[in-house]
Each structure stands twice: as structure tokens, then as C-alpha cells.
Amino acid sequence: MTAASLDTTARSSAERGALARARLLRGLLPALSLALVLLAIAWLNPRAISYFGFSLMLNLAIPIALATIAQMFVIAGNELDLSIGTFVGFVGCVTATWLKDAPLIGVAILLGSIGIYALLGALIHLRNLPSIVVTLGMSFVWQGLAILVLPKPGGKAPDWLLAIMSFKPPFIPFPIIAALLIGLVVHFGLMRTSYGVILRGSGGNPAALKRAGWSLLKTKIVLFALAGLFGVLSGMALIGITTSADANIGNGYTLLAIAGVILGGGEFVGGRVSPIGAVIGALTLALAASPLLTFMHIPPDWQVAANGAILIIVLAARVLISRRER
């Protein structure tokens, strides 16, 4: 009898070991794909691997990383946000107009928009609406508001924002520091605090959380407000880089952000997300879609298709490896 129980403990510890290894592999996967893309870029254009090169290649990845984190909060709650791209565009237009000319009103509008995000979370939870439908509708609202704020391209980023985004720290390029900071702060908040566990749990196993006495309404509101907050940061960062806004500036971010979360090890089932992975996923996508493509010298007729092909290959590699883990 003792022998038998020993046998089972041994087996379960071996299983646990395998599971831990799979989890490690899964955690390393985003970093691995980033390394691969970087190697390819280094091989194609060694000049890009430098302080100046990284500053240029990665600075537009920062707003993508922030939008990806925003999307990650929504996906953590087992929802999907199809409006994050146009929301970033709206924030951009406010940043380039109100925030510069009348900072107080600008801040109020941006805080108000985060409030709207929180209300959306409440609406989706209370009326039990599919988030895809609600956020798809909101994407047109944000787009319309953006055009209202800025009917034709223009405006100018506030000087302090320009100064932050063109900051040149010694040795390590600013985008890398910013990416590390974003990843670590969100990782600590969502993965290491007890309320972070609750937030993830509300997406992963809402029934259990509800039975334990936690308010699912509150968690959903918090998740959506956090998404709004990071959407605002994304829009501001974007305008800090481009210096001027356009109502359509963020439209491409919706799908990039979803792809970034998935590439970074997140899953659509809710609760299974990784902040550091999401940031790395956003960086990988930004690098794979633009610098890698530009450096490959593909004939112009094929460039658009090649862009899509690279994204599919990168995402397929992620799915292949996570399949093996099962």
C-alpha cells in the first residue's frame, strides 16, 4: 500500500515536471519569436542593430504595445474589444488639439473617455451583451468623434509629450526601456497582486468567483477601465512620435493588438494572458510587419501579401508549439 502511494506521488511529480517544462516553453515562446525576427533583421541589415536603429525601429512599437496591453485586459475578462484602434485614434486627435491648447479640458475629456470604457464594461456585464457587438458599435462612435475633433489631418502634440517620446537615455534606447517598464508594471499588477488574481479569475472561472462572493460587475468595470487607460496612453504615445494627428491614425491597431496578445501567449478563453508576453508579442509584430519586410526587398506587387504572410507564419509558429505542449 505504501509502495503504491509512493508510485502515484512519483508519477504525479513527473507529470508536474513535464507541465512546468511546457509552461516554461510557453513563457519563452514570445521571446523566442522576437529573437528570431531580430536575427533575421540583423542578417538582412546589420546597420539596424544599433542604438539609433533600435530607437527608430521600435519607437512606433510602443503605442502598439500599450494598445496590446489594453486589449489584453479585455481578453483577460473573456471579452474582445474591436474599438481599441479607433479609440486610440480619438485619443490621438484629442491629444493633438485639446490637450495642447486647453490642457485641463483635454485631461477631462481623456478621463471621461476612460469612464465611458468603464461604463461599457458595466453595460456588457449587466445586460449580458456580446462584447464584440458593443465594441464594434463603439468603434464607429470613436471614429465619428475623432473626425468631429479633427475634421482634417493636423494639430500638434504638446511639447512635454514630444520631449518624453524623443528622450534619449544613455546606452539603452528609450523604446526598450519603455517596453520593459510597461511589461513589468502590468506583470506585477496583474500576476503578482491578489486583486490581479481575482481579475484574471473573473474571465477564467466567473462562476467560482461569484460563489466566493466577489462582484463580477466590479471586476468587469475595472478591466474595461484599465483597457481605456492603456488606450489613452497608447494614443498619447503615438501622437508624441508622429507629432501630429489624423482621425484614421489608429485604425490598424485593433487587429494588431489582438494578434499581439495571442502571439504573446494569451488565449481567447479568458484569464490566460501574459503581460510581458503581450509586450514582446507587440514588439515582434511591429518588427516583423515593417522593418523585416522593408529590408527583404520584395517586389512592390508582392509586398502587401508578404506582410500578411509574415504575420501568419509568426502566429502559426506560436500555435504549433503550444499544440505540442498538450
Binding site: 536603429g53 527608430l56 512606433l60 491614425i249 491597431y253
Partner: peptide, 16 residues
């Protein structure tokens, strides 16, 4: 047709 994509492209052309 997105602006950020073209901005990134210009930056890559600088690096090239």
C-alpha cells in the same frame, strides 16, 4: 493606408 505603417516604413528606409 494607415499613417503609423507608413511612418514606420519611412523610419526603416532611414535605417536602410
Amino acid at each position: 493606408k494607415e499613417v503609423p505603417t507608413q511612418a514606420a516604413q519611412v523610419q526603416n528606409l532611414i535605417l536602410q
